[in-house]
Design a protein around this nucleic acid. Structure first.
Lengths: 219, 219
DNA sequence: CGATAGATTGAGAGTTTTCAACCGATGTGG
DNA sequence: CCACATCGGTTGAAAACTCTCAATCTATCG
């Protein structure tokens, strides 16, 4: 939920050099299908050329959660690749996606041949852990409204074009779609957001975040 | 909350070789003090010789959360070190702690001189991210009772000797101490745990987890 | 043995969810 | 280009969890 826009380089596209790019296999997948599925063995990782990807998992009660979002110009599937683990969650195409698949028998090979990519992935990993732990902290200490506001800002920053649904926002911050709807309606009433069809328009991120902080104050 | 005992090597002590060990500065700190504090610049990382460390953060409303636990034979402070970031949370000594401090100007130096340590830390990082995201998933899809049960098992596995308090268990899974108390009382009534003074004795982890799964079924 | 931190218990409050019904947007086939 | 099907969004009322607050108890330790 927390919005951290520091580590600026990590929020920008990573530009692949040609030597590395040529190692990748070009693939594409339509909206709704999975790039990889929880439990699968990892033998490589992916670079998103265009489109948007969600990393999702399902709780035993059937509730889905949106763990991460990967936008174009970034990677996905690196956690399991770097650890040599099985995939822990499922990578879903939220839009039609074009991507490069990089296969390596082992993470050490990547380190040997393309150290800069390897090191970049480590930074991403560190950043992901930071975000995940911030979200854990937020889940215990913040009311739904603040979680929703911050998630909205976070997701909109990840992809301002994509029409995030109430469901996805809720899956990102542990709220039901009904609660998200109600919260957004309140925010619209106060003039902090607008609705355009189903989409949500955030005119001024700062006033939204100010409002959120204000709410926290009288928690 | 989820208990994953796969990645077995990561739950064991990491044995330092002498060459590396000699680079470390021996330090110790009494229970209750911080090894490092949120916001601090990172210039190295730590290896715990004895004792137990908690990584904590505080939500804006003042509620503390227990993000990670590092026991003897493992490292702490590596996330910020590897990313070159500031520390994101505070490392508290839960007991008296003896540790080695390893200072490096840069993570690349560690990789160059001690690649095996570097690679091990990457695995740990991957594992931490996995756990953190499992916990995020659990927080949206599990009731307090299950979160408490799984946290109890998890923490007891991290350190079976340490008398985990209701507060700490609650801070780990986003519950109040009162709720933890009530839940533990129920579990005691059913014979799944025992209390010995303030400490909690888990005689059979498996029946506890079975019970948890059973609860999930009729969610 | 007293002091203190942690644990327990109860009653009441409050946030968020659940369930159910209905509405509206989007997009597709005729 | 319209009609309809479908998916997503909205709203309300009721229920359910979990928390809050306050009082009391009890380990633990100097």
């Amino acid at each position: 939920m927390k919005v951290t826009v520091d580590d600026s380089t990590l929020n920008q596209s990573y530009i692949l050099d040609d030597a590395f790019k040529s190692k990748g296999v070009l693939k594409s997948i339509p909206k709704g299908l999975n790039i990889y599925t929880k439990g699968k063995d990892s033998e490589g990782f992916y670079y998103i050329i265009s489109g948007l990807i969600g990393l999702v998992d399902i709780a035993p009660n059937g509730v889905e959660s949106l763990l991460r979002v990967h936008s174009s110009g970034t990677f996905t599937g690196y956690r399991s690749f770097l650890s040599g683990d099985k995939c822990n969650a499922t990578s879903v195409a939220l839009t039609d996606v074009t991507y490069l698949y990089f296969e390596f028998a082992d993470a050490s090979l990547l380190l040997k041949d393309f150290p800069s990519i390897y090191k970049y992935l480590i930074k991403v990993l560190c950043h992901d852990l930071k975000i995940a732990e911030q979200r854990l902290n937020d889940l215990s200490g913040k009311r739904v409204m603040n979680r929703i506001i911050e998630s909205l800002v976070f997701l909109k920053q990840k992809d301002p074009e994509y029409p995030w649904t109430r469901r996805e926002i809720g899956e990102f911050c542990s709220a039901t779609t009904e609660t998200v709807t109600r919260t957004l309606s309140k925010l619209e009433k106060v003039g902090l957001i607008e609705k355009s069809g189903r989409d949500i328009v955030v005119s001024c991120i700062d006033s939204l975040l100010d409002f959120s902080r204000q709410q926290e104050a009288n928690y």
